[in-house]
């Protein structure tokens, strides 16, 4: 019986509002109760929705909802439910509380005349596991110099190369060579896994990129960002094949301080310029309009450090269901 109060079908999809994508859960809930109320007219029926699993201290919660695509915002009664009077028949609802929770779509709910049907809507926190993939760090000092790089990775480090113990210590050369004793490298590499809130918010700008345009798109944006052709090649040969797997992708970049949410870098001696660019992306089914994101360019003056990385947003359906 417990399951009766939960949604039975979850289809994880993305919903588009004003050109941005936020994941939502589609649920066809079963009503908790359905009781006749003769005080209602024959043309009336009342849905009561109880909102659960919202974990915040807000005592004045408002819910964004839509009924049959008519949108409205109302204050929750007793900070936990709303009642909507409507006509008997089929209705579809959507509920959105905040960007910290997945939006919920009910699908079609049927109600009889003079009835009060009660549903429990379980919100799900929009937290997901991401794997910042392949951040690589290049260093270009003005003169041969001993450098120490420390990373404060915000998730769990899964791979670092060359071997990292407390820090990377090496000699950097103006051409970008990093000498660790006998061994020479072009970059430092790290990878991690961490939990974050859904990083895609409303009104976020970005790009919709077709599979066939992926390489041109990346070359264009990375040139604008100021990455060298070698750095671009490392980026494109890593992400290019992945962006080509689906016809369209939504792509958004994060720059500099924004990347501190994945890892903070501490470099001694202090570089003149540190530039970080991360690409966040996920497949979408079709092209739609997004506001074009402005690319923050790198300043490559003096001792310059460049880092790029990124991750695909993946929401595992099983994970969603498991935690309900």
């Amino acid at each position: 019986m417990k399951n009766r109060f939960f949604a039975i079908i979850f289809v994880l999809v993305s919903s588009l509002s004003f050109g941005q994508v936020t994941p939502y859960i589609q649920a066809i809930p079963l009503s908790d109760t359905s009781v006749r109320d003769k005080s209602l007219s024959k043309k009336e029926a009342v849905f009561k929705f109880i909102f659960e699993n919202i974990n915040d201290a807000n005592t004045n919660r408002e819910i964004h909802y839509s009924i049959d695509d008519q949108a409205a915002i109302v204050k929750m009664e007793e900070n936990s439910f709303i009642e909507l009077t409507t006509t008997p028949g089929e209705h579809r609802f959507q509920f959105y509380y905040s960007e910290d929770y997945f939006e919920i779509n009910t699908g079609s709910l049927s109600i009889k005349a003079q009835h009060r049907d009660q549903y429990t809507i379980n919100f799900r926190e929009a937290i997901m596991t991401i794997q910042p993939a392949k951040p690589v760090i290049y260093l270009y000092p003005k003169t041969e110099i001993d450098v120490k790089v420390q990373l404060d990775i915000k998730g769990t480090s899964t791979f670092m190369y060359p071997t990292y113990s407390d820090s990377w210590k090496f000699t950097a050369f103006p051409n970008g060579d990093l000498h660790f004793g006998e061994r020479h490298y072009n970059y430092l590499f790290w990878e991690s896994e961490q939990q974050i809130r859904n990083p895609l918010h409303e009104k976020q700008s970005g790009f919709i990129v077709h599979r066939e345009e992926a390489v041109n798109f990346l070359e264009g944006k990375l040139s604008e960002a100021g990455l060298s052709s070698k750095e671009q090649a490392d980026f494109i040969t890593y992400w290019g094949p992945q962006l080509q797997k689906s016809e369209y992708n939504f792509v958004r970049f994060e720059f500099n301080e924004e990347c501190n949410q994945y890892a903070e870098m501490s470099i001694t001696p202090q570089p003149d310029n540190i530039y970080r660019v991360y690409m966040i992306w996920h497949p979408v089914d079709e092209k739609y309009k997004v506001f074009e994101q402005k690319i923050t360019p790198a300043v490559r003056e003096g001792f310059t450090v460049i880092e790029w990385g990124g991750y695909e947003i993946e929401i595992s359906v099983t994970e969603q269901i498991k935690s309900l």
Binding site: L12, V13, S14, S15, L16, S17, F18, V21, P23, Y24, H64, Y65, S66, D69, A71, Q94, F95, Y96, E103, H282, P283, V284, D285, E286, Y288, I315
Partner: peptide, 10 residues
């Protein structure tokens, strides 16, 4: 949600 213009299946 608000104005649901399109639904994109991921």
């Amino acid at each position: 949600m608000k104005n649901q213009l399109l639904i994109v299946l991921l």
